[in-house]
C-alpha cells in the first residue's frame, strides 16, 4: 500500500512488480462494466481463486467501475496479476480523470451518502479486498488500487 502512483496519470499503466501487461478496460457507461468483470473473473479463475473470492473480485470491480460511471463519466479499469513466491494476487486499478475527490476521508466513511449507509461504494470495496489505496487530486481525477490475494 502507498506505493502506487499519484492520480491523473492515465498513461503510466503498470507498477513495476507486475510481470505481465495489465488488461485495460475503458469505462464510459455501465455496459463497459461487463467486460471489466469478465476479465477480472477470468484472471481469478486462472489463478485458482476459490468461488467466493472470484465473486468478491467481480464485486470490487463492479463497485469501482460504477464509481467511475457515476462520478467521472470516463476512466479505465486495469486488471493485472501480482505473483510473488508463495502467493498470487489480482491488482485492480480504477483510474479516472474526473473531478477528483476533495475530502478523501469523508468519501471513505460510511454514511457519506445514502448507499454508503449500507456500506456500499468505496468503503464497501475496502472491506472485501486485502489492500486498498486511493489517491485523488481535485480536477485531476482519482486512482483507486486494490489487491486481492488468493487465500492459502
Amino acid at each position: 500500500m502507498g506505493r502506487e502512483r499519484p492520480a491523473g496519470h492515465l498513461r503510466s499503466a503498470r507498477s513495476p512488480s507486475e510481470g505481465e501487461k495489465s488488461i485495460r478496460v475503458p469505462i464510459q457507461s455501465s455496459a463497459d462494466i461487463l467486460e471489466a468483470r469478465r476479465c477480472g473473473r477470468e484472471l481469478a479463475a486462472e489463478l485458482g481463486f476459490p468461488a467466493i473470492d472470484r465473486t468478491l473480485v467481480a464485486l470490487a470491480i463492479s463497485e469501482l467501475a460504477r464509481n467511475i460511471v457515476l462520478h467521472a463519466e470516463e476512466g479505465e479499469i486495469r486488471i493485472a496479476r501480482d505473483e510473488r513466491p508463495g502467493s498470487a494476487g489480482i491488482v485492480v486499478t480504477a483510474v479516472d480523470s474526473g473531478p477528483g475527490i476533495g475530502d478523501l476521508r469523508a468519501v471513505l466513511h460510511d454514511g457519506y451518502s445514502a448507499s454508503r449507509n449500507l456500506g456500499l461504494g468505496l468503503p464497501g470495496v475496502r472491506r472485501i479486498v486485502d489492500e486498498f489505496d486511493i489517491s485523488s487530486k481535485p480536477r485531476h481525477g482519482t486512482t483507486v488500487t486494490v489487491k486481492k490475494w488468493k487465500p492459502r
Binding site: G119, P123, G124, R127, I128
Partner: peptide
Amino acid sequence: PFEMTHRA
C-alpha cells in the same frame, strides 16, 4: 452486495 453491508 449484502456481504459489504454485513462486513460494515
